[in-house]
Design a protein around this nucleic acid. Structure first.
Lengths: 117, 117
DNA sequence: AGTGCAACACCGCATTGCAGAGTAGTGAAA
DNA sequence: TTTCACTACTCTGCAATGCGGTGTTGCACT
């Protein structure tokens, strides 16, 4: 059961996975920074613990690889980056997300349209 | 704490609430039918128990009113419909949803655009 | 009539994700 | 030294999802 793929049912509550994956796709980074970037991008209320948890989960699922970069200006930083598996997972999750988002948006706008399909 | 309003953190996993609310906004209906409609609209993997649970939760939160319609073709049907509170909740949730969805979509497309306005 | 099935409602349990709070360690500023 | 901004991580509680099961009421078959 260490598939990196998300099963659709999980996406309902696992939007964070997708977000983290997306951020990591732009550039490798470490937990603290991921949180910062997520918040800068509109996900302002994500708890850091959630992100760390997500990171760990993703890592254990084999979607990420990580390496420690010692810093001379503070504690070490544990970078995470997408690997093939991760990119695939991102791709798939993104797709699922798009359908979900489309379905939802359709539902939300559906009251003003004249004829359904 | 029985506010019908969703706090943003909940939306991450509570997309179902919004979906159910939206379906109910189109027309009153009963659990079994809600599931059917949800599935027809792309939310194909929602479990019926989840929907019943959501319905009950929403009802207890005061967002829905319900009435039983005896059916001559089977057991009675327990209809649910939005009340003012429900509409407000839908409205608010929808808004939160839109921001979230925007943020996510931005993240997902962010790699190919030069500068977001 | 009896059996079985489909439509319908609902519950309990286990799993899992998310968040809050707390621990810990480093380097720089006060 | 105390404090603070960074950085990582753990424990724990809560709430939501889903599965499987239970029960009911008609209808179609046999």
């Amino acid at each position: 059961m260490n598939q990196a793929e998300v099963d659709p049912t999980q996406l309902l509550k696992g939007v964070l996975d997708l977000a983290v994956l997306a951020v990591l796709a732009e550039a490798d980074s470490y937990g603290y920074d991921v949180v910062r970037r997520l918040r800068e991008n509109g996900l302002d209320h994500v708890g850091d613990a959630s992100v760390y948890g997500t990171l760990r989960r993703l890592y254990q699922a084999g979607a990420l690889n990580s390496y420690v970069v010692p810093s001379d200006e503070g504690p070490h930083r544990k970078y995470y980056g997408l690997n093939n598996r991760g990119r695939k997972a991102l791709d798939q999750s993104a797709q699922t997300w798009v359908s979900l988002s489309k379905a939802l948006n359709h539902l939300l706008n559906g009251r003003s349209n004249g004829h359904g399909k």
